[in-house]
């Protein structure tokens, strides 16, 4: 069982390196944002497998936190490259 978890962690680390390749090389900004989003998701699964390997349940709060942070970061970047601002100003005040 433990060997299976280690092998899964190794394969996901290779996938992580592949996503890093797209993050470095990506021709446009949107490519890099896609790669960052997928990197956050891959990091969530790496943390889940690490908590299985280390047999601790204290890492499981990190999973929820990291998925929320990845979503907020992606939304902020998408809004930035679409409109140029992240927080809109109030129109009349």
């Amino acid at each position: 069982m433990m060997t299976f978890y280690w092998v899964a962690l190794l394969i996901i680390s290779f996938a992580f390196v592949g996503l890093l390749y797209r993050l470095i090389k990506g021709p446009s900004i949107a490519d890099r944002i896609v790669a960052l989003d997928a990197l956050g998701v891959a990091l969530v699964s790496i943390i889940a497998l690490l908590s299985l390997i280390l047999e601790t349940k204290f890492f499981l709060a990190i999973i929820l936190l990291l998925s929320i942070l990845a979503f907020i970061g992606t939304v902020a970047f998408a809004k930035f490259i679409e409109r140029g601002v992240i927080f809109d100003r109030k129109p009349n005040r």
Partner: peptide, 14 residues
């Protein structure tokens, strides 16, 4: 988030 990235990429002219 996938939808937002695709829309932002299209609107910014990729």
């Amino acid at each position: 988030s996938g939808h937002l990235i695709g829309r932002a990429a299209y609107m910014s002219g990729t």
